[in-house]
Design a protein around this nucleic acid. Structure first.
Length: 637
RNA sequence: GCCGGAUUAGCUCAGUGGUAGAGCAGCGGUUUUGUAAACCGAAGGUCGGGGGUUCGAAUCCUCCAUCCGGCACCA
């Protein structure tokens, strides 16, 4: 007999051995049906695996995140079985569950085609319909290696060789397909159901290393039922409608063309948005006691050699030749800022010195990395460097975090997490200094109440860093802000200040940005708002549209009044129906529309319609102007 | 950079070897309209670029560019 303790504390006794399947059945038929695995003393087990001793258990059901992960893992195995059945010459490698689905990496000479994907998916449905039992087997290590080698599965053999000796080598058998796997799995392929779909083909390097063979990855999505699958596909369509590249064209904000790959042609409307954002962040920095500077874009290689960029960052830099000198477009502003810092003597009384620049940087990003506004070769950071003493790091970091959170809040980003990247293996500076810097960042972030996740060993070679990740309206994460402590650059470029003791001292530099790149942040905003920008950022804030041309004169007057009040107003006097105009300006995502007909002209009123709204509001012109200009005010003014 | 796919009118997309098409937008006209598409008409193309196969290429082959999806990269 074994005593099985359920999550609610009740104890069942069973004849030993007992399986998870049996336990679930004893609790309820519905639970047995929804069960996908069992947690035994904290470990996930197959439902069919024998439990020999007393245990604390929990049944894992398919509609939980954990259950879906198992389901997705099964889907990967079913896909591998389908691929091996259709294309026996293919080698299988690894196939994990991922967010929303799964993938499997295959090695095969001829690439898969989209048509193959359809075939594989059909075969998967057949395997599910056959409801093959999935059985766990523990194999002797050498036997397993030989088994896979005999099958020509060299990657699998390599994986087994890497499994620590004390761990069991477990294989899972379903139909004729045997795969190395840690498990657990559902009891049979039928349990996968129909809630899956193959999504895309992609290349992926073996073990994620670009020096290795490129494998073929097939991505799929999998859910507990078809309804959830459909809901997911719908969400993908909705997300695609927010794509900033599409909205950028539809809203006439910007374009990119072949002759300037990775650089943005800002159209008048897009540039208005850019200017508003820049003006906003400039105001916030002014208020936070930053000074703003501007440094050269084209700088002699001598300076990059001194700063270390020529050695560490050369391949990402664009260069130019002039009069036998090699110049480079700046990829970062920091060396320029140190040059300004070095002008004249600096005293400890000048610290902390917060030096900001909306500098245009160029980086030669690999072509495959380019992506709309999100990853470009020419961009503008809301960059600043804080020159301070080591003792000031905590206070400055704290102030920065507070400022960053307040800025994000103005865009509706309330959900922010911090990734703390500490010392990498290869680094500059002494451990005692790193200890102090890491502690300073930790103290500061803890004081702001931010959620911190560790990114061990991911710091820059010159110091630890914080990365600020925000979550947008549909739950996607974007890393925008950053704060990096730098001990190296002040040293390399010989920045110093006169201390209280009258001696020379080395300042610490904090590299920091809130928006990151303005281009990229605009991309994030477009997607976050789905193009419906808040009034203060909207390129056109209000359209004055006539119903018939009898009201043209009054409409002009209204538009003029709005403009005088500082609103970005446009006039629509076209010979079109008001329905047509409403539709067009709605599609253009103009937040406000004032319809002007004979009634309005007579009473000196306007009829206000808000984007997406169903009804209108009649207002006296003066009241409308007062109200709308108040609504259009940028935050922090 | 690597793997795969795509590139036809301003936009979205048909067109599998035999005279380049549609809808929307734009343009010209008619219509004077009350909150998400009035009607009529004329126009609009080096089918991404180069080379090749063919009597004949948007269509087949090849090289290149760009874009898209991943991978790698993002100090």
């Amino acid at each position: 007999m074994v005593a099985i303790t359920l999550p609610d504390g009740t104890v069942q006794t069973h004849d030993a051995p007992v399986t998870g399947f049996k336990i679930a059945g004893a609790i309820g038929k519905g639970l047995a049906k929804a069960a996908v695995a069992i947690r035994v003393n904290g470990d996930l087990w197959d439902l069919t695996r024998a439990i020999e001793a007393d245990a604390e258990i929990a049944i894992v059901t398919r509609e939980t995140e954990e259950g879906r992960a198992l389901l997705r893992h099964d889907a990967a195995h079913v896909m591998a079985e389908a691929v091996k059945a259709l294309y026996p010459e293919t080698q299988v490698t690894i196939g994990p569950a991922i967010e929303h689905g799964f993938y499997y990496d295959f090695s095969r000479k001829t690439p898969f085609t989209p048509e193959d994907l359809e075939k594989i998916e059909r075969e998967m449905h057949a395997i599910v319909a056959r409801d093959e039992a999935i059985a766990r087997e523990v194999w002797e290590r050498e036997k397993a290696i030989q088994f896979f080698k005999d099958q020509g599965e060299h990657y699998k053999a390599e994986i087994i060789e890497a499994i620590p000796v004390k761990e069991d080598v477990t294989l899972y058998r379903q139909g004729d397909f045997i795969d190395l796997c840690r498990g657990p799995h559902l009891p049979s392929t039928g349990k996968l159901g129909k809630g899956f779909k193959l999504m895309k083909l992609a290349g992926a390097y073996w073990r994620g290393d670009s020096r290795n063979e490129m494998l073929q990855r097939i991505y799929g999505t999998a859910w507990e039922n078809e309804k959830e699958l459909k809901a997911h596909l719908f969400r993908l369509e909705e997300a695609a409608k927010r794509d900033h590249r599409r909205l950028g064209r539809e809203m006439d904000l910007f374009h990119i063309q072949e002759e300037a790959v990775g650089s943005i042609f800002w159209h008048p409307k897009g540039w208005t948005l850019y200017r508003m954002l820049e003006a906003y962040i400039r105001r916030r920095l002014d208020q936070a006691d930053y000074v703003e500077v501007r440094t050269p874009e084209l700088v002699d290689r001598m300076l990059w050699e001194r700063s270390g960029h020529w050695e560490k960052f050369r391949e990402h830099m664009f260069t130019a030749e002039s009069e036998e000198r090699t110049l480079a477009l700046k990829p970062m502003n920091c060396p320029g800022h140190v040059q300004i810092f070095r002008q004249g003597l600096k005293s400890y009384r000048d610290l902390p010195l917060r030096m900001a620049e909306f500098g245009c940087c160029h980086r030669n990003e690999p072509s495959g990395a380019l992506h709309g506004l999100m990853r470009v070769r020419a961009f503008t950071q809301d960059d600043a460097h804080i020159f301070c003493t080591q003792a000031q790091i905590t206070e400055e970091t704290k102030a920065f975090c507070t400022l960053l959170l307040s800025v994000y809040k103005d865009f509706g980003f309330e959900d922010v997490v911090v990734k703390f990247a500490d010392r990498p293996d290869v680094r500059a500076g002494e451990d005692a200094v790193w200890d102090e810097a890491e502690q300073a960042l930790r103290t500061a972030t803890e004081a702001t109440g931010l959620e911190i996740s560790m990114n061990p060993g991911e710091g820059a070679f010159y110091g630890p860093k914080l990365e600020f990740v925000l979550r947008d309206a549909i739950g996607r994460e974007w890393q925008c802000g950053t704060l990096q402590v730098d001990f190296v650059l002040p040293e390399r470029l010989d920045a110093n200040y006169v201390g209280e003791d009258g001696g020379k001292h080395r300042p610490v530099m904090l590299h920091r940005a809130i928006l990151g790149s303005i281009e990229r942040f605009i991309g994030v905003l477009i997607e976050h708002y789905a193009g419906r920008l808040p009034i203060w950022l909207a390129p056109t804030q209000v359209v004055v549209a006539t119903i018939t041309n009898e009201s043209d004169a009054y409409a002009r007057e209204v538009c003029e009044t709005l403009r005088k009040a500082g609103l970005r107003a446009e006039l629509d006097l076209r010979n079109e129906k008001i329905n047509y105009k409403v539709r067009e300006h709605s599609l253009a995502k103009t937040p406000l529309l004032l319809a002007i007909g004979s009634r309005e002209a007579e009473n000196h009123t306007v009829s206000l319609r808000r984007l997406g709204g169903k009804d209108q509001e009649s207002l006296a012109l003066e009241e409308a102007v007062a109200r709308l200009s108040a609504e259009a005010a940028a935050p922090g003014l």
